[in-house]
């Protein structure tokens, strides 16, 4: 175990090491599918839709075409509220490529009222005030600005307790 192999380099060593650089062109077109397609239409109209599984009675949100627990097609579309509760959150000071952020992004899992699930979105709440269990309210883009995207909700702010 004494003479393990492996040669560590420092970032600056790359200036003199022989290396090969490659940037693949990875462009995709992802189909939104049956359930999310309709979910996006709802967002464009300023509404949130879940889909109910009549077997386990859960209202899946965001909606899904099938229930992964009961393994059946989901049933009716249910409009849910645009209010909810913070299940958990983080104050994130860094981007995916490790660039620093002065003001934190606040990702949160939000349990939407009238649904059985939570979803990922952004909170815009004073970092000193935010708490797990806090009620929140969606802030939407204006009707003409909405395009049918998860970002049609700009963020969530503190709601009425």
């Amino acid at each position: 175990m004494k003479n393990l192999r492996g040669t560590g380099l420092k970032e600056k060593d790359f200036e003199r090491e022989f290396t090969v650089y490659y940037k693949p062109q990875l462009e995709y077109r992802w189909d939104t599918g049956l359930a999310i397609g309709k979910f996006l239409e709802g967002l464009r109209d300023g509404k949130l839709f879940g889909k109910k599984c009549n077997k386990c009675k859960r209202i899946l949100f965001p909606p899904r075409a099938f229930c992964e627990r009961c393994f059946v097609d989901t049933d009716e579309w249910i409009e849910v509220k645009d209010t909810g509760t913070i299940n958990t959150y983080s104050l994130c000071y860094i981007t995916w490529d490790m660039k620093q952020l002065k003001d934190p992004q606040i990702p949160a899992v939000i349990e939407i009222d009238g649904s059985s699930g939570g979803f990922l979105h952004i909170a815009k709440i004073d970092p000193k005030q935010i708490k797990i269990g806090m009620k929140v309210q969606a802030i939407w883009k204006r009707a003409g600005e909405r395009t049918g995207s998860i970002t049609d909700i700009k963020y969530f702010v503190a709601g009425e307790e």
């Binding site: 983080s90 994130c92 990702p107 979803f119």
Partner: peptide, 17 residues
């Protein structure tokens, strides 16, 4: 890709959450 990535997530988010 449709319901989460447009929010600009990074891996740390899920662990922090």
């Amino acid at each position: 890709h449709t319901t989460e990535r447009p929010l600009g997530p990074n891996l740390l988010w899920i662990f922090a959450l």
